[in-house]
Write a protein that binds this DNA or RNA. Structure first.
Length: 585
RNA sequence: CGGAGCGUAGCGCAGCUUGGUAGCGCAUCUGCUUUGGGAGCAGAGGGUCGUUGGUUCAAAUCCAAUCGCUCCGACCA
């Protein structure tokens, strides 16, 4: 690209609505343009980086015998009604009607569409396993889009779907895709961590799934990591064990006044008790269809509830915290909730398994301005149901090796791999014949990568005060060629060098604009291509050399015009190797 | 959806309290000068003040409604 003829504009000022570095830099460096909330246009520089990511993905998938297709982005309601997700994904889906009144939606994901393609063409175990993928636009009507393309409503995702005659084949492909995914981010030189995850509404409960998390302070995901054995999991799925010194007592349960003390902090502060010697009571409503059940969850005072665990326990479609109105209906005073003598007909009660049932706790009095002291669950409560419900936390003991202490890391989820099993083939009634001529539901795996999010994550991890620092593998171009001269002969020379670089396979941007050198250098730093090449009238007149400079290290070197191609190729190769080594955690 | 805030030129903002017919910096255009870290001088173009309605002799300014955007929360393969 010659900038004098190109389409590229940078901004000196940081846009007010951009919060995190990658979002600010993508706008300032002229990579993207926001057209509406959560909707972006990719400009030439941004699009090239995105295409680099996509091509790495294509190359790595090809190695694993995955074939690219492209399903339609708009899909008919029938497909979603078949799988039962037309209503389940309500809210996330952008639905519409065509002129005949048929209902359609913009795909938020494509399991149904791929199953639909699969069932048309595959009918025998002999055709399996097979893995198809696409790189295509998705739309999820996020309640709150934010952080630029990190959480946009329209985005581009690579989604792959594999089909299998049996579990063994499904496990095998899962493992293969794990390697494919690792190679992809390795090649980009990103620091990432693979973590155990929760399947959410995608997979059946308990099925295998892992997330690939690019490590970044601005990440929205919390990951727990054991430095001893390397165990890592999304905090939602993490298994940590809390070790607490509980307090024991022989004293009888006692009702005391706690006027206007409603929160844990207030009650424990007032009674001068550590929060871990009290029970936190939270009420949730579990909804399945028209059926609504209430559940009282008891946790150690300073623990948090893991809603996913509760949702699994309740086997419900939706879960929401109870509102004051619900509590009024149940005739329970908000702020003074507790298990002691509560009516089990109205509400289910579950103790978290971290609670020592023989220890003594402070708990709500079930009447206004009252709490109990010395509540001992297995002495004072007759019906006790225990389940694992707490959110694991940094500081927990690792459940895998029993030695390490879990640490928290923030991550950006750029990919997730699932073993789906027969969830979709069953609901959509897809069968193939096995060796015995028997009809079976094939098993599925699915594997997603946020391509647009990967670009943002790469910038999030590679930037400094001056701008972006692209990894070589996904940089929009390799070399930012700055010419400093007004002399026509020099401009002409820069065009010759530019052509020469292109002929040798080096992707180059030539800044031949009629602006000052400072302006060009600032722009080059902001865009952050791996190498900057400078042809300056002043220096060239002195020694006949050009300057080549590394954006990341700032290291610079003078080189003769004749050696340009070779030097640049060597630098790029060296940089790429260095980046490969720095990946993964 | 609940809470908060903001909509004035492409971008960043002032003006609004106390109504009098819109301004600054950057960007853009022209000319001259300037070329190793976002140049200087001189001039120019560009705004239904988000929209609609109301109050008023007069509304960017006051009132109401509405739309859009952002932040916090809930939501999230």
């Amino acid at each position: 690209m010659k900038l004098s003829k190109g389409f590229w504009q940078t901004f000196k000022e940081t846009p007010t609505d951009a919060e995190i570095p990658s979002h600010q830099l993508m706008i300032r460096a002229g990579l993207i343009y926001k057209q509406s909330a959560g909707l972006f246009a990719y400009l030439p520089m941004g699009l090239r980086a995105l295409q680099k990511v996509e091509n790495i993905i294509r190359q790595e998938h090809a190695k694993a015998d995955c074939y690219e297709i492209r399903a339609s982005v708009i899909t008919p309601a029938e497909l979603w009604l078949e799988s039962g997700r037309w209503d389940k994904m309500e809210g996330q889906m952008l639905k519409m009607k065509d002129r005949a009144g048929r209902e359609l939606c913009v795909s938020p994901t494509a399991e149904e569409a791929f199953v639909d393609v699969f069932r048309k063409y595959v009918s025998s175990y002999k055709q399996l396993p097979v893995c198809l993928y696409q790189i295509n636009t998705k739309f999820r009507d996020e309640i709150r889009p934010r952080y630029g393309v990190m959480r946009s409503r329209e985005f581009i995702m690579k989604d792959a779907y594999s089909f299998h005659p049996n579990e063994e084949s499904m496990h095998e492909t899962y493992k293969k895709m794990y390697d494919v995914y690792s190679n992809i981010w390795n090649r980009m030189g990103l620091k990432y961590i693979v973590v155990d995850a929760d399947g959410g509404t995608m997979a059946s409960a308990g099925s295998r799934t892992q997330e690939f998390q690019v490590i970044a302070d601005s990440g929205e995901d919390r990951v727990l990591h054991c430095p001893e054995c390397g165990y890592a999991a999304n905090i939602e799925a993490a298994e940590g064990k809390r070790v607490i010194e509980f307090s024991k007592t022989d004293k009888k349960i006692e009702l005391v006044d706690t006027p206007d003390k409603k929160t844990m902090e207030e009650v424990c502060g007032f009674l001068k008790v550590d929060k871990k010697h009290s029970l936190k009571s939270v009420v949730y409503s579990a909804i399945t269809g028209n059926d609504e059940k209430f559940v009282l969850v008891l946790l150690v005072g300073d623990d948090e509830l893991n809603e996913i665990k509760l949702k699994t326990l309740m086997k419900c479609d939706h879960l929401r915290p109870a509102l004051e109105g619900d509590l009024d209906k149940l005739q329970i005073p908000a702020g003074f909730l507790g298990p002691y003598k509560i009516d089990r007909k109205k509400i289910k009660v579950v103790y978290d398994k971290a609670i020592d049932l023989s220890a003594s706790f402070v708990t709500g009095g079930l009447q206004k301005d009252k709490h109990y002291l010395h509540f001992v669950p297995n002495r004072d409560d007759k019906e006790i149901e225990v389940s694992d419900l707490r959110l694991s936390n940094a500081g927990d003991h690792c459940s895998k090796c029993k030695k390490g202490i879990l640490k928290e890391i923030k991550g950006i989820e750029v990919g997730q791999i699932f073993e789906l099993g027969d969830r979709y083939t069953k609901s959509m009634n897809v069968t193939i014949l096995d060796q015995n001529g028997k009809a079976i539901h094939p098993l599925m795996g699915c594997y997603g990568i946020g391509t647009t999010r990967t670009v943002a994550a790469a910038i999030e991890q590679n930037n400094d005060a001056d701008g972006i620092i692209w990894p070589v593998s996904i940089a929009p171009y390799h070399v930012h060629f700055v010419v400093i001269s007004k002399n026509e002969d020099f401009i002409k020379m820069s065009y010759e060098i530019y052509d020469q670089l292109i002929h040798n396979g080096i992707e180059v941007v030539l800044d031949d604009r009629n602006v000052g050198p400072g302006f060009k250098f600032k722009d080059a730093d902001l865009l952050g291509l791996p190498l900057r090449l400078t042809l300056g009238e002043r220096d060239y007149a002195q020694d006949g050399m050009l300057e080549i400079r590394d954006r990341r290290s700032g290291k610079a070197k003078k080189i003769m015009k004749e050696n340009l191609i070779q030097e640049i190729k060597e630098w790029l190769l060296q940089k790429q190797n260095d980046e490969l080594k720095s990946a993964r955690v």
